[in-house]
Simulated scan of single mutants.
Amino acid sequence: MVLFLHDFSFKSPEEVLAEVTGGMRMNHGAAPAQAMPGMGGMTGMMGIGAMATDLNDFEFDAYLANDRTLDDPEIVRVDKGGRVLLRAVNASSMTVLWVDLGATRGNLVAVDGGPCQPYSATRFGFAPGQWLDIEIDLPSDGTALPILALREGTRERTGLILAPSSASISRVADLSEAERPAFSRDMTQEASLSAVAPLAPRLTDRRHTVMLGGAMMPYLWTINGENRGNHTPIPARSGERVEVTLYNMSMMAHPMHLHGHAFQVVGIGMQRIAGALRDTVHVPPMNMVTIAFDAGEAASWMFHCHHMGHLQTGMMTELAVSV
């Protein structure tokens, strides 16, 4: 079963971009950033506890689940007490979401198509460009189960409803009672994931440090101080084991997507981990994430932020793989 999520505006993409770049700062959910596990002395050096981070920079007209709102949600008929595999896809252009199962626990078994050791929770976060496979055991009493997608830092939500044929279905409001927390500052989920089939152990042939920068005003975003069209490619040779440390020196999180490769998350802050295999990793503000991969076919592979406003205003480079 697929839960396809996206943000919707009656304005054209050009109008949306003109609004966010025109100094109209939509700063919902901004609050002092929290220190991330493993940052150690770096957190104190940056002083991020006294700084405010940004979550959302545009107000969309609707948030859709399989092209519908909670005014008329999709009803998926299921067996009482059965098990479903939910594939949740965050196809939003600029919105980070939580998938919320209410009081029901689910097991996250894959991220971005990469199987991971089951991670049990009632709520799972993901950024634009990411997708989650969640196993859910349905209520044995035959009641309906809303599967909600919550916009981080706000009250907006969307979703669908899993229901046996005999279940009564209650209306779910499109605003929750309280604002939801920020997934973009919480690395608990990412730090808890581990790949079923991790990268084979080997020495690292090449290391890169990549700086993510930019600001809301002016609305410009960069990689290594450069924007797309004026960027310097990141070099690698086919077959090399490459590690890239992504330092986010901006006040927004960035879902960084590498074309043509699956990588393993091997570091969060200063802490090494044996994390999930992904193609998109969400890098929190004023923090760092390290990824590792084996460089593939000789080609120029796009490497960019999957937040479309950030990509369009500069946050794109390329991994230049040579023979």
Rank of each mutant, 00 (worst) to 15 (best):
A298P: 11
L193V: 09
T232Y: 01
A195K: 09
L193E: 02
T188D: 12
F293I: 05
S250M: 08
P233G: 03
P218Y: 00
F303I: 15
H261Q: 14
Q271M: 13
L311C: 06
W301G: 01
A200Y: 05
S238N: 13
G269D: 05
P201N: 01
R241T: 10
P201Y: 01
F293A: 04
R202T: 11
V266H: 10
H259S: 05
A215C: 06
V210R: 04
S250R: 00
M308S: 13
A215E: 04
I291L: 12
D294G: 06
V242S: 03
S300G: 08
A262V: 09
M286C: 05
G225S: 02
A262E: 09
A295R: 00
V266Y: 11
H259A: 08
N230W: 03
F293N: 12
T290Q: 11
M286A: 10
Y219D: 03
G267M: 12
A195I: 11
P255R: 02
G314Y: 01
S250I: 00
E240Y: 10
E240D: 10
E243L: 11
G309H: 09
D294H: 09
A200I: 04
A215V: 01
T188N: 11
S238Q: 13
G239I: 15
E190M: 13
M288F: 05
M217P: 03
S300E: 07
M216C: 02
L199V: 10
A276G: 09
T245E: 14
V265E: 01
G269P: 12
H208N: 05
M211P: 00
M217A: 06
G239E: 06
V283C: 03
H310Y: 02
E226R: 15
M216L: 12
A195M: 11
A292C: 07
A215W: 04
F293T: 13
F293D: 08
L203D: 13
G275L: 00
T313L: 06
M187C: 08
H310F: 10
L212V: 12
S250W: 00
M302G: 10
L319H: 09
A191S: 14
R278M: 04
Y247M: 08
A292S: 12
H259I: 02
M249F: 05
W221S: 07
R272H: 14
T188A: 14
H282W: 02
H304R: 14
L277M: 13
M288G: 00
P198G: 11
V289M: 07
I291T: 13
P285M: 04
H257P: 07
A195H: 05
A195W: 03
A215Q: 05
V265F: 00
V281T: 12
S194D: 09
T245W: 13
D205E: 08
R185V: 15
G229A: 04
G260E: 10
G239N: 10
F263S: 01
G213N: 08
S192W: 13
E243D: 13
F293Y: 14
R272Y: 09
N230T: 13
A298E: 12
T290W: 00
S192R: 15
S194E: 11
V244T: 15
M316R: 15
L203T: 15
R272E: 14
M216R: 07
D294W: 04
R202C: 09
L258S: 11
F263W: 02
R202G: 08
F303S: 12
